[in-house]
Design a protein around this nucleic acid. Structure first.
Lengths: 255, 255
DNA sequence: ACCTGAACACCGTTCAAGT
DNA sequence: ACCTGAACACCGTTCAAGT
């Protein structure tokens, strides 16, 4: 709580070399280096998001990590909301979408979905950041381009390609949103909530909740990876069948 | 910005009857009545959520609407987070799930999804509230019970019923989450972002974004209701086919 | 061109004190 | 049992001022 000299202080110690007996706090080597680029701000923000969650991500916290005051950030980014825009696009850029391999478009689409899920699980609170944001940054555009390439190369007609693309990312978002709600606490070992929920359901009045009680065991029986694959099967399978149906219909009509 | 006398004031006007020439601000009649029940707090919070969004929903704002200070709320609710729990469950309670009609289970499941979407669109920011929350309140349990009843009465085996139920609400959440991102501004007439996005995409370098540009028109062509119905078809259709497959497989194995 | 300290108008929450 | 004012430790953002 007390101010540590030379850590977040006023800069009066700048000219002094570090006294050799002071235990240097690990990253002290950076010390007033790299002149606060926009990129450095985004990377710092992402690190804080991962380690402390969206709650812990404040301008003051980012600034502290960069050895400055919060006000200094506003020359590089317009606002916290603007920073979150950059953060969102940065994370989208982490996904490496493969080149189209037409006969494998269904499997490739599933790969895209698995990649999205993995990215969200790696940066759990990013889905909260994405909430009110339309993905329109440079990385988001490249991402869209490459996913659409897979669908169109696979022979999916344009209207279904767009709807399928938009629905897929929305659906994966929904799944992981639900999934990340389960274990909020940062370093909590084991999950009390999953089994606790099952026990709680089992203790409910039988007369009022016959169905819920009957299936209580199933809530924790299927694991999440399996459930995710089921979702992909339902969705991508349905999309493929739709493509086939439309092809059949338009062939029948034109010939 | 200036304080209006007698509207959010300190309560010194309590004994005075309302002067007949003052235009009474519609609900001024309440005036220091009902002794701040938990329910009143929740309802006030929901009204603020709807009119001003989650951003505008602060303890102080809720208290103001109830003619008190923020501190007074803490005797009735544990914390703001606790209030959001109550708010979430309250909104879930708005959904009226029909009694099972076994042969119509697929259509009924779609109805459940449409109801969920309508509820979210009626309280747009509720999806942000639901973010880290596991639906375990009394209304959520009743809701789960009734949806599961529809699935099981329809002959869906327990494991698929649970997965199907969980996936459906997640998927609808994802869809509406995406949908509500488009027009954030409160009373904005017309949507600039939809067409603006299309125009922006059209202005991109052809060489880098051939697919995105080719389908630019499709982004705004299909309307949201239609896209939502497509999602329901893909999902519920897929689930039904899965049920049939499993039935066939288990019959084949046992006989 | 880039950074800073101090201030403004907010937050959620606590706590001693009132009735 | 219920409510209150004042305070605490935070926010995002602005702005005059420094180099």
């Amino acid at each position: 709580m007390a101010k540590q000299a030379g850590t977040s202080g006023a800069g009066t110690t700048e000219a002094l070399p570090p006294a050799p007996w002071q235990r240097t706090p690990q990253r002290a080597a950076r010390r007033r280096r790299d002149p606060i680029t926009q990129e450095a701000i985004v990377e710092t923000a992402l690190r804080i998001l991962d380690s402390e969650g969206l709650e812990g991500l404040s301008m003051r916290r980012v600034a502290e990590e960069l050895d400055t005051g919060a006000a200094s950030l506003y020359w590089h980014i317009g606002s916290k909301d603007g920073l979150l825009d950059l953060l969102f696009d940065h994370v989208i850029g982490e996904q490496q979408i493969p080149d189209p391999d037409p006969p494998r478009w269904q499997e490739q689409l599933k790969e895209v979905a698995r990649l999205q899920r993995a990215t969200i699980l790696r940066h759990r609170d990013i889905v909260a950041v994405s909430l009110g944001r339309i993905p329109m940054g440079p990385n988001a555009l490249r991402y869209s381009e490459r996913v659409l390439a897979i669908l169109r190369a696979g022979g999916v007609p344009d209207d279904l390609a767009v709807s399928g693309y938009l629905l897929l990312i929305a659906v994966v978002n929904g799944f992981t949103l639900d999934e990340t709600a389960d274990e909020q606490p940062g370093g909590d070992a084991g999950g009390p909530s999953k089994d606790a929920a099952r026990d709680y359901i089992a203790s409910l009045p039988q007369a009022q909740f016959p169905n819920l009680i009957a299936v209580a065991g199933e809530f924790s029986a299927v694991d999440r990876d399996e459930r995710f694959e089921l979702l992909l099967d339902l969705f991508v399978g349905g999309l493929a069948r739709r493509v086939a149906t439309d092809e059949y219909r338009s062939r029948g009509r034109s010939k």
